[in-house]
């Protein structure tokens, strides 16, 4: 009878936490771009698109790099998924807050 091997949850934790980190990075980029003109100028990778091009591109780079690093760190590990998921939810919530216009307009 074939027995099924249970995979470690490390790679799943890495994907979930990286999504949280990418989301937070995006919220942070939006807030910084709104608050500091030099940052907005830096993020203007495309004149037609404006700072949105840099905010999104930078956040995607942060997301992918953090995913790769976390995947390497956790690939053979079994972690507390509940804790990782809670941390990711906090990061996503902060990221969403950072992209909410009434919030970043206060900066």
């Amino acid at each position: 009878m074939e027995t099924k091997q249970t995979l470690n949850n490390g790679p799943a934790a890495a994907a979930i936490l990286a999504a949280g980190i990418g989301s937070f990075a995006f919220g942070l980029a939006v807030c910084l771009s709104q608050a500091v003109k030099a940052v907005a100028n830096f993020f203007t990778f495309s004149v037609a698109v404006g700072p949105l091009a840099g905010k999104t591109t930078s956040s995607i780079v942060v997301w992918l790099v953090s995913w790769i690093i976390l995947s390497l760190m956790l690939k053979n590990r079994q972690v507390s998924l509940a804790k990782v998921f809670a941390a990711a939810l906090v990061l996503i919530a902060l990221g969403l807050l950072g992209t909410f216009p009434p919030f970043y307009d206060m900066l």
Partner: peptide, 10 residues
Amino acid sequence: EHVAWFSPIL
């Protein structure tokens, strides 16, 4: 323009 970008990542 901002919130939409959460969707593909997640």
